[in-house]
């Protein structure tokens, strides 16, 4: 009776390694979060609970400015990328193969294939010469760069949604006297909406997280939260960094959880 049943799926040691893996993934992040509440200056010695680093971070003007810039860029870039990706998805799904289709796919996916550092350097060169020529050093460069690399991320869920959508629905709308625009407004768009929201959220998170390209493209004095943090990491770090990171992580996790929940509910 005591004999354990033989499980076909079991592999010796796999569960242990997997659990170690999960601990390894979460332990550093959790430690980082915990120490954001440390009363002391050290990120290793616990000296009691306090909100002081959060207060300090909130009062830090540089943090405020960079966080604001991050949100501004992520919002604009995510919205633009999602609109562009939606249009491109409409042009590239459920059509007979046409000349240029593969080229469009390749173009949309380049940001996924090209190493970030290479794109960053390329943008540095290109935008540097434009900055010299025009004298303009605003956030348009960052917005353009972010929009570009967000497009494939927004494109993926939208395209997936379109492909799983019944193509005869639009034909049925046309059959029932809907002009192409009205068929889009009344049928395609409402059905595509969950995909568009998912794309928007992915694009937003991706833009918010970017370090490398922003670091190379930004003009002097322009810092997003990640580039600000990258600069700070060179110095002695205080739990203020932990506090900023914790808030940042919270936002990302929330958006991703929402995305996960939304895409799951559909199936």
């Amino acid at each position: 009776m005591a004999k354990a049943t033989f499980s076909v799926r079991r592999q010796t040691g796999f569960a242990t390694i997997a659990l170690v893996c999960f601990v390894m993934l979460y332990a550093p992040i959790l430690t980082l979060m915990i120490y954001s509440f440390n009363d002391g200056t050290s990120v290793a010695i616990w000296e009691g609970f306090s909100w002081r680093w959060y207060e300090r971070a909130a009062a830090n003007e540089q943090v405020q400015e960079s966080a604001l810039l991050s949100l501004k860029i992520a919002s604009i870039a995510a919205v633009l990328a999602t609109i562009f990706a939606t249009m491109a998805a409409l042009a590239t799904t459920r059509t007979r193969p046409y000349r240029g289709l593969t080229a469009i796919f390749a173009a949309i996916n380049t940001p996924l294939m090209v190493p970030e550092i290479v794109t960053a350097v390329a943008l540095l060169i290109f935008f540097a010469s434009i900055k010299v020529a025009t004298g303009y050093t605003g956030i348009a460069y960052l917005v353009a760069a972010h929009t570009a690399f967000c497009i494939p991320f927004a494109y993926l869920p939208i395209r997936a949604r379109l492909e799983s959508m019944d193509a005869t629905l639009e034909i049925a709308a046309a059959d029932l006297y809907a002009t192409p625009w009205r068929a889009f407004r009344r049928v395609t768009f409402p059905l595509l909406w969950p995909g568009i929201v998912a794309g928007l959220m992915l694009a937003f998170v991706i833009s918010l997280d970017d370090v490398v390209i922003t670091e190379f493209v930004k003009s002097a004095g322009q810092d997003t939260l990640p580039t600000y943090m990258l600069g700070q990491l060179r110095r002695i770090v205080t739990p203020e960094m932990n506090a900023i990171s914790t808030v940042f992580l919270g936002i990302s996790v929330m958006v991703v959880a929402l995305f996960f929940f939304m895409t799951r509910k559909k199936n």
Partner: peptide, 17 residues
């Protein structure tokens, strides 16, 4: 199609979900 006085009952019905 949207200007033709013809309507279709589709094989899979194609009802708007």
């Amino acid at each position: 199609p949207f200007k033709r006085p013809v309507n279709t009952v589709f094989q899979n019905y194609a009802l708007f979900p």
